[in-house]
Design a protein around this nucleic acid. Structure first.
Lengths: 194, 194
DNA sequence: ACTGGAAATGAACGATCGTTCAAGTTATAT
DNA sequence: ATATAACTTGAACGATCGTTCATTTCCAGT
């Protein structure tokens, strides 16, 4: 009995993500969200419960996308280290022209929110941590393949990468001139601490 | 004739800055601003014109503070390079416990705003650029003092510093565990590219 | 003391916010 | 065909948004 929802949840969350990613949490209104995902308030609240519910679903969707992207690159790549480098270049360079925002949505969220939105902040933090954990796995793999010295600490290198990605994306948004991002990323992997 | 304004503009802007710094642009309401600076709407609009006007004044105040802080540290320091390091440590570590937000207000603003708020975004970007220019000056001074190799490019090093500061502050906010920030900053100045 | 005018006040405006819910629609099971 | 329950709809709610402005307060100059 009954009828099935006619909307495509994945597509809806993807559209919501793009809007939230561009505008941020506070600047996104339920009204603009309704337009972006083509749903009426009642349906949205039945499915997601609240504006926060949609945002949480978006954060999780974004994190899933990021990790899938990293896995995809790894499989298409001949080495774990070059996969990492490709991922960094995509995150820093490709998003400049082909994304709702050149910032990482998770980092942007952590930057925007305070403890007033503790739950959402927590989701964003944990998502960033889980991406970092994938970095650790790839770096360990690189160590076993001899691409990275065994004396290095994989966790520290992963942390280093997160800091560089965030810093570079922020700097790219700050700067209007053309910054040699590609060269800077190459340098990351060619010098200390790699 | 007439009477003089009874509020202390500097104090008012300082209070507004603290609120905006903590909450960000969109999450700060004129109502909470009125409380924070203890002014009524009419007086605020007479003095600043709009919510954006107060925010602009706050961004400029924050930038001025940052540069004054850097100068202060330089004068109290025996070398340009150690002044830089002290500044980075204050920005990254001390703000964790004693500031409205552990993020840089300018970076946070660049992260939050879109071209929809072009003017404010532009003010934040230029302020960050002017801080970076002070870094260039200090690094050049360090080169003349023999603290940094003459073969290095001062502009590139300044850019590097901006990226590290932003990345570290973001990472510190992301991470709940204790991150060895001090050691990481020491490493910055002890290894490539310095 | 008086007064002109700048400064401060806070009620109020229309717009928009996140959210609710009664009514309407539709697909399925009988 | 009909009944039922799931899903959709959009008007409407009270709260709050950024902003305005008629009014009141207060001080400087005479």
């Amino acid at each position: 009995m009954s009828k099935k929802p006619k909307f495509d949840r994945d597509q809806v969350v993807a559209n919501a993500t793009n809007l939230y990613w561009e505008k941020g949490y506070h600047a996104t209104s339920m009204r603009s969200l309704q337009d972006a995902i083509d749903m009426r308030p009642g349906s949205i609240y039945a499915e997601f419960g609240s504006k926060d519910g949609v945002f949480k679903a978006s954060l999780e969707h974004y994190a899933r996308l990021s990790i899938m992207q990293l896995h995809g690159i790894r499989e298409a790549s001949d080495s774990p280290l070059s996969a990492l480098k490709t991922f960094v270049k995509q995150a820093v360079i490709d998003t400049q022209t082909a994304a709702p925002s050149c910032m990482c949505m998770l980092a942007k969220t952590v930057s925007e929110l305070t403890e007033e939105q503790h739950d959402l902040l927590s989701v964003a933090k944990q998502a960033l941590k889980s991406v970092e954990n994938r970095f650790v796995a790839l770096i360990s793999e690189a160590q076993q393949a001899g691409e990275v010295g065994q004396d290095k600490n994989a966790s520290e290198l992963a942390r280093f990468l997160q800091i560089q990605i965030t810093g570079l994306r922020m700097y790219a948004k700050t700067s209007d001139e053309n910054v040699p991002l590609e060269k800077m990323i190459d340098d990351l992997f060619n010098h200390y601490p790699f």
